[in-house]
Design a protein around this nucleic acid. Structure first.
Lengths: 239, 239
DNA sequence: AACGCTATGATTGTCAACAAAAGCTGATCA
DNA sequence: TGATCAGCTTTTGTTGACAATCATAGCGTT
């Protein structure tokens, strides 16, 4: 089995609650439902033409993905945005993806490594192309692909689930709203990581991955500080 | 707020599904429900005197804790036991708790550090006492307390939640069934970690924590290999 | 005018019945 | 004898109605 599968671990939804969960998740991630908004069960159930029971099950799944929070007898609401939380996520990714890179360095098959390297080459071309088209989302997606590949190659199933299912939904949530600038530097860091993995140097791969994520965190922080208060206002924590 | 609160983050359950969730979780963790067993909704709902709706909500919460798995149209079952999965958990803890120790080294208040040091002293006494009474569970609980304190002191709320809510239920699940021997060596390693934190040396605290968890993993692995096939048979993966 | 209390409306939690799917039993046929 | 399929049973998914809880607005009191 190769690790090069689409980032969307798309298992065909068989149940109504499942389909609803996927729809709602997409809506939240892509900003169709504003961050921090309270969820009205009767209203949502009506607009999606499902019963409240199925909706509650879908909401429960969203809670697993950390995309909504629920309080007893009060209700659910979309998570709200905070810079502090984004920094926390970067810290966790630093630790976990560092470990993933270490494991991937020894576990990844040579052909998968070749594919990963090819992916980077394509990205190099895409960067200039995307730059021209102003399609930053293109670059972001390929950035996510890179990280997904390495995580998948770690071989640690639980690590994969914790990252891909639990944490990366949050990453997408923030990424969509921040639309961070994606510097060529990040691509260089990616290449260094792959080179270490090609040398099967797990220790170095981990160090480089941690450095890369820490650097990304600082780039995001710097970008946030340049944003106008108005831009941040929409996204600031609502509590 | 001090980090020295009971490991059971006990918020009084207000809803039936909540209370049921806590009951079931305890039952699973303490082995009242055998690992790998299929959950019959009508049966469980009957024995706990609740409706299937509430039960399903509780099961959904158990799924979040990674204590049960659910397949559509087939049902839920208690997670089953596998050595490979236990090793995976140790790897994740190595990465995440290492980061927690690094953060705690700079965040922890001096008085909390003093408390932690005192906790270790008490454990030192308790070890001999427990040794005499053959109450290995005593030692394990205090081991968990140690790790909980450092995680809580990291200050990273999401890291705390991912570890304390998601991963440590699994740790307890395995710990109850393996009943691992708790060597004095582990206590020494704990002391080294605290000393590094007292020096506010986050880098070293992380290294020592990672070393400690890696060593614990190898101790667990070694102990597993000495177990008879019969002992392991009850706990082996049922698939 | 400000604070607290009460009644009302809306929302969430809970339940039991219905529909659909999976698993099993036993009969049939090669 | 063995496999296959039909029909039945059991289990899960889904729904709408009922009960409990929370938020709000209006009133009265200090």
């Amino acid at each position: 089995m190769t690790v090069f599968q689409p980032a969307n671990l798309a298992q065909e939804p068989v149940t109504i609650a499942d389909r609803l969960f996927l729809d709602l998740r997409r809506a939240i991630l892509e900003g169709d439902m504003p961050a921090g908004k309270k969820i009205s069960e009767p209203e949502l159930a009506g607009s999606y033409k499902v019963s409240r029971g199925s909706l509650r099950e879908a909401i429960s799944k969203l809670e697993n993905c950390n995309l909504v929070t629920r309080k007893p007898n009060i209700g659910a609401r979309i998570i709200s945005f905070s810079v502090a939380q984004l920094m926390e996520i970067y810290q966790i990714r630093e630790a976990m993806e560092g470990m993933a890179a270490r494991l991937a360095a020894t576990n990844m098959s040579t052909e998968d490594l070749a594919h990963l390297s090819a992916l980077l080459d394509r990205q190099q071309e895409t960067v200039t192309e995307a730059e021209r088209l102003q399609q930053s989302r293109l670059r972001h997606d390929s950035d996510l692909d890179f990280h997904f590949c390495i995580i998948q190659a770690s071989g640690n199933d639980r690590l994969i689930r914790m990252l891909c299912q639990d944490l990366y939904d949050l990453v997408r949530f923030y990424r969509f709203r921040l639309n961070p600038s994606y510097t060529p530097k990040a691509l260089q860091e990616h290449e260094l990581i792959v080179e270490a993995m090609q040398r099967r140097d797990g220790e170095m791969a981990e160090l480089l991955m941690r450095h890369h994520i820490r650097a990304s965190r600082e780039r995001a922080r710097a970008q946030l500080e340049t944003m106008t208060p108005a831009e941040r206002g929409q996204t600031e924590k609502i509590s």
